[in-house]
Design a protein around this nucleic acid. Structure first.
Lengths: 207, 207, 207, 207
DNA sequence: ACCTAAACGAGACGGTACGTCATGTCTTTTT
DNA sequence: AAAAAGACATGACGTACCGTCTCGTTTAGGT
């Protein structure tokens, strides 16, 4: 009896080298950390990875695309909202973790470079949005809607605004460095955000 | 009577050309808007401005430095706090103006790259901080301290955190584009911020 | 009855593809003619012939080697000496045919590069020498030695010099293009060569 | 009184570097000799000359063009016909010198490479023809016409054919290597050519 | 009216990286 | 075992900019 699976028609030629692929992403990550985005070049990545330039260009259309993949490879456990039951504690934890992640040179620099590339490369922008920003946003929206249903968050507030009020101060400091990110007190920010988003004391569920 | 001015000892030689300076900043701005940051080159600016490359390098240390000046030249009416007496109204106005400025294709988009550039170029970061961010920050701090004295803003809050809560959501959307900047409702944000920063109502202590 | 053929021990596996071989030589010739030697690449030949690159490398050591074979494949009727009994007529015929062949855009021009190639590639030089030049040279030497025996050619002359005097002017114009090959008059050249190589007339010794 | 000379309008900008120019031609010549034409690359020339690639491309359109200039720089004393009064001796001398020059790796290889490049680069072909081949050809034609007037050379012979008969055997062996160039006996060739081109014994001026 | 001196436009310079092309080798499935 | 396919490491190509360096040419004081 014949196999009826309509799968892809068996690839011809030498298959793509997994070794090269990993070496490229690894080299990009290392060079990013060691030399910074400024000094990151395709030729440098190829040399460090022990790979021909053409092998890079065969699979990635731009430096930004490599960066996206290198970043996503690191970003396995995407830091998002963690549920304990205590909303205020979860809020402070989320703020702390976001601040720590952005301050980590292993994550902050690549993140920044990604946004930089996204500015002039629509493909990178799309990937960044769909792979990184949107999933996190959707998860948070879902949580905030639930919090509204539970009475923890005012129902007259746009959930996106709520999410922005929580995370924006961290990113703002990260991007502008107008004030050091390390000066941010997660508890102070958490309390302030809570005051802004929780229902009025009179009618709200208190206990 | 002798000249008492202790100024610099009278310059020798041909003075700096104001025409060249303006042409350079103008060319940088136009190219930025027309071609984007990616395509912006010193050679391109020099050619558009009808200027020798050396004239650029004589006065600016880097492409980022030119951009900061071009940004400042465009940003004559620097969006800052305007005083009317009604704190809430002033707050909403400030938010609206900041959002409008950043969303303006003449200002916001072209210069986003400047902030990313600062992340990897300390010289640009320093100039950007001292010329743009710090003056605004100082003015806002002064205003917020006054607001605390007036009883409009809680005294247990770090003024930098207050300022960040006002502006960060706008910049966050501007930088990440996770949510469109145009979706932001200045009134909603203003009210939320007010709840976060104003002293406890009436009875004060809750317990 | 046993097979007595002492040949190679019966090849295993798929035999060499005659189709591929002809396609490769044909493609090389066509590309040579259409695009010129400069644009001739192994990849181009493989693509045009519908053949894998490895198939080319399996049978030919270099581009020059392919070219030699392509040249030979085209040069079935190898311009050589034809015997009629009239030495002068045969001489003029040989000159005419050589000039015509080299001037033919199907043969001469495309393969001029082959000879230059040989100057810097010893492998090509060897193949070219053994496959093309030497056989012709040997045949001509044999003929000239016979002519010396017959009294048609002076016996104090090196036969290679005789052969060169016949063909060199044609190749010289072909290679250098200092003077158009088409301006060459086979009869004039034939007569001149004859004067140079035939024994002294009648009285013999001049003094 | 104003200077009316209509000379070139005074060059703007930094003038062309003579040092770089000489270094490039020198490096090309050395690499040619040391590594051969096969290994000659623009990058190699730039590296050896201590020069940026762009400096080469700014002044020469192709590798062939560099080669022409490098060759011409060497070819100051262009080996041509030398007059002593004894036509036969001059003929043998010219043949000897041509053979020696082509056998000299300092001259032979560049010459060959030049013809190679000329094949696929019309600009090189034109320069080669006008700068090298044609001047020599014109000088020789003039001499042969004079020899015809003097009765040394038959008047029914095309002078170009005469010149070709003298030099072609040398070049033929140089290009094809069918017979070693060193086997050529200038005296034998000279005598043979003389027999071919001098007037018939009966009517010609003898003394 | 000269003189000095710095800024100016122009553009060549030594470099670095770009993205592409071809080389000759390799690794897969198909014949 | 040979073939078609195509990925691989290598290295040169020709181009674009970088930041520096001369040139000849303004354009202002100072004399």
């Amino acid at each position: 009896m014949a196999d009826m699976t309509p799968s892809t028609p068996a690839p011809r030629g030498r298959p793509r080298s997994a070794r090269a692929q990993q070496a490229i992403l690894g080299a990009a990550h290392e060079l990013m950390r060691e030399e910074g985005y400024r000094a990151l070049t395709i030729e440098g990545i190829a040399a460090r990875a022990g790979v021909g330039k053409q092998t890079i260009y065969r699979w990635w259309p731009s430096k930004g695309a490599i960066l996206v993949d290198a970043f996503l490879a690191q970003l396995q456990t995407h830091a998002t909202w963690i549920e304990t039951g205590d909303f205020r504690a979860d809020l402070v934890t989320a703020i702390s973790r976001a601040a720590t992640t952005l301050a980590d040179p292993e994550f902050g620099s690549p993140y920044a470079a990604l946004f930089y590339e996204a500015l002039s490369d629509p493909a990178v922008a799309a990937t960044l949005y769909q792979q990184v920003l949107l999933p996190s946003r959707i998860a948070h929206r879902e949580r905030m809607v639930r919090a509204q249903a539970e009475g923890t968050v005012r129902t007259d507030l746009d959930v996106d605004l709520v999410i922005d009020m929580i995370y924006a101060p961290i990113w703002y400091r990260f991007f502008t460095r107008a004030v050091p990110l390390s000066d941010l007190d997660p508890h102070a920010l958490g309390d302030a955000v809570l005051r802004a988003i929780q229902p009025a004391t009179g009618d709200g569920a208190r206990g």
